[in-house]
Structures are given as structure tokens and as C-alpha cells.
Amino acid sequence: MEQPVISLRGATASLGSRPVLRGVDLAVQRGEVVALLGANGSGKSTAVRAVVGQVPLTGGELELFGTPQRRFRDWARVGYVPQRTTAASGVPATVREVVAAGRLARTKLGPTRKADREAVVRALELVGMADRLKDSVNALSGGQHQRVLIARALAGEPELLIMDEPMAGVDLANQAVLAEALRTQVARGATVLLVLHELGPLEPLIDRAVVLRDGCVVHDGAPPQAVGQHALPGHDHVHPHADPAAEPIRTGLLS
């Protein structure tokens, strides 16, 4: 079989003194779209951040495109959408300026060329934000913000897209737009690993779902069929009568 694009074997990681990943196995093949599901605090973000090298593994193995992560340098092949970070900072910046940062994976320390500027516009067209090119990111809504962060990852024309809750705060109509954008990426051969809480309009695109609970994989296979509150194993139960055995007590207010 071909080398997996992402291969995580027996991965363990801790944040502070707390073990957050407790032996996660995850393999993503070229061209696959894999959804990572699980309740708040189950370790989805940590797993994804470990894959992009932002959380050190305390054990296990991680390979990207067949290279051990430690020696992986080809970051232009990877596009990353972090969870709910804000694109706003202490100084105003336009949508174009923020998205152009995604292009640095290719230009590195070199100059920007015409192709780079065109890629930025194309990425914004894909997420339906091309008309806001010159607007300040401070003047965007939460969902628009999220779409700018997705465009930033797309600007580098990556082979592997890693997205942490890309649909958070995005309305259904725009989720459909993003699903279409993702479909185009997959059609040109991209591989996708994305953290989701609901499959929503992405459902038809998803080949496989991996469900985490308390830092362990509890399901790896077909995406859950019925899409609803209770469909996902280990899904967030926020209502008062939730089965207390299924989850440690969690109010859902702070996570």
C-alpha cells in the first residue's frame, strides 16, 4: 500500500502534567477526507496540533508524507487552520494581508511574485470572501473571520489540509460554499483531516470518521449515519439528563 500522508502510531502527549493523548493511532491515506470527532476536551485539537508539530509527543511515532515529523521540512505541502484563533492583532490588517501570510509556506524569506498574489485572491474566491479583500479583519464577523483563516490555509495550495473546527460559527449557506471549496481541493488530489462537531453539509465528502474520547480512539470507520445530537459516540451531552456514566461531569459552559 502507498505511504500514508499522516501516520500517527501509539501517540501520547501531555499538556502541563495532564496526559491528553493516551496512545492514538491515526492513519490518513492520500486523497482521503477524515473527520476527527469527539466531545470537548477529548484531545482533538491536541492531536491535530501534534501532527503539525505544535505539541511535542511524549511517545509513539508520527510521520508526515513518509518522513518522521522531526525531520519533516516540506511545510509548503501542509495547510493549517487553527481552532478559533483570531486574525485580529494589535495593529489593523486587511483580509488580503492576513491571507497572504499563508503564502509564506512557499515564498519563505523570498519576495512575493504575481503568482503569489493571484493565489491569495483565488483562495478568497474559494471561501466567498473576495469582495472583502481590502477590509480590515477587525471589521469581520466571527464566521467571516473563520473563512479568512481557511483562505489563509488554502493560499499555499497545500496537498494536505489540517483544519480544526473550520465550520465553527459559519452559517449553513456558507458551510455549503466551504464544502464546495473543499470538494475542489479533494478533486485536485488534496488530503484532508478536519476536526468537526457536526458533519453538516460536509457529510457526503467524508470518507472516514475517527472518534476520540479522553485521549483514546474509540471509533475508526464509516462516518456516523444519522446526523443529530446523539448520533456521534462520545458526543457532547450538555442537557441535564445526560447519562453520567458516558462522560465525566462536564457542564459544557467552560470548554
Binding site: Q54, Y80, T85, S89, A100, A101, L104, G156
Partner: peptide, 21 residues
Amino acid sequence: GLRRQLFAICQDEEFARVTGL
């Protein structure tokens, strides 16, 4: 000379690290 790179690291350091800068 390095305005794009410095902008990126000051805007979102984690993202900048993942671009390989």
C-alpha cells in the same frame, strides 16, 4: 525587507511556525 515574515510571526505565531518559517 522582512515585513511579510515579521507580520506573520507577530500576527499568529503558531500558524507561522506551521508554514515552516
